[in-house]
């Protein structure tokens, strides 16, 4: 339903996205995941026909979004980051306007508007002025305008941003309900959201796709490095020298987390792929007279995969040691679902 091939968007000398290729099957919900500024919005805007790509092609429902722009646009429902609303209109009036400009015939309009209102749970508010609506309702009206013309493809740019936990759950349910009849592509920087609603997740980092798969397969597919957190009483150069001889050992870095004692060294060691190097590490250390005070294998979660894939600095604190990023990644109320 959506075919994107080698899409690039270059602003001056910086590339917002580079060689992005992916495809979405009919009826699927595809999550576009990445940190802020990774190129999610740019990709969404190109797909929606708002921005022209510098190179590459993007086909939606068989139409190239740039060359057959007008036909492609008719097949797309698009919710930008900020829901595009006219505050002085009523919800119903606004949806009627959108239905008109999207080319819904006059006879079909009332049923389509009712459908959109019902899907988005807005039936009892149809006569309300948009400027009187709260953020959550505005977002729903934004989604309603994206589905009012029954488009085969729906593009949602950060549909849950700025909503409270209850509203987030409502909007997610709503999006899930759209799958099947519509092909949905949504962007988010919240990982649990992607794994909760999407059939497939594509992770984008600095404008390049780094991974794409079902949420469950993403981890195994990526051959995530196994890492170890150890605490030793020695200096870094010496430990490093000892450890670098171990086969399949990838990196040894100083973990920038607080050590229990100042004179001890806390290290983060990663191996290539899923090689089990724990016994080798402890043996090597003990043989050289540096017994570890503490050693722990860090189980990579999907969140770590995401962080690893999308963070430039590799020596981030392991999430087990209270990482400040964690609160941002997981909005409160997440467990209620």
């Amino acid at each position: 339903m959506i075919e994107v091939e080698k899409l690039s968007k270059i602003y001056g000398s910086t590339a917002a996205i580079q060689d992005v290729s992916f495809s979405v099957e009919p009826g699927e919900i595809m999550g576009f995941l990445g940190p802020n500024g990774a190129g999610k919005t740019t990709t969404m805007r190109i797909l929606a026909g708002y921005l022209p790509a510098t190179t590459g092609t993007a086909k939606v429902a068989g139409f190239e979004v740039h060359t057959d722009s007008l036909q492609a646009r008719q097949k797309i429902g698009y919710l930008p980051e900020i829901p595009p609303l006219y505050p002085e209109m009523t919800i119903e009036g606004f949806l009627a306007f959108v239905a008109k400009i999207k080319g819904v015939s006059a006879g079909d309009r009332p049923t389509r508007i009712d459908y959109a209102l019902e899907k988005c749970n807005l039936l009892d508010r149809r006569k309300t002025l948009i400027r009187k609506l709260s953020k959550g309702f505005r977002q729903r009206v934004g989604i309603a305008q994206a589905i009012v013309h029954d488009p085969p493809v729906i593009i949602l740019d950060e549909p849950t941003v700025g909503l409270d936990p209850k509203q987030i759950i409502d909007v997610r349910k709503l999006i899930k309900g759209l799958a099947g009849n519509h092909t949905v592509i949504l962007s988010t920087h919240i990982l649990p959201e992607a794994s909760a609603i999407c059939d497939r997740v594509t992770i984008i980092k600095s404008g390049k796709i780094v991974a794409t798969n079902k949420p469950d397969n993403l981890m195994t597919d990526l051959q995530v490095n196994t890492s170890y957190d150890i605490e030793v009483d020695s200096n870094y150069d010496r430990v490093r020298e000892i450890l670098m001889g171990i086969p399949h050992l990838n990196t040894v870095t100083i973990a920038n987390a607080k050590a229990f004692r100042d004179d001890r060294l806390r290290l983060l060691i990663t191996s290539e792929g899923s090689h089990e190097i724990g016994p080798d590490i402890s043996t090597a250390l003990v043989a050289n007279g540096i017994p570890p005070y503490e050693m722990r294998r860090i189980q990579a979660s999907l969140e770590d995969v995401f962080l690893e894939l999308t963070t430039e600095e590799m020596n981030i604190a392991p999430p087990i040691l209270e990482s400040p990023d964690e609160s941002q990644l997981e909005p409160s109320g997440e467990d209620n679902e």
Binding site: R73, Y78, P80, I82, P84, Y86, G103
Partner: peptide
């Protein structure tokens, strides 16, 4: 209001 994005992504 961002509605320009709506108009620009409509078949018009």
């Amino acid at each position: 209001r961002g509605t320009l994005e709506l108009l620009a992504t409509s078949p018009i």
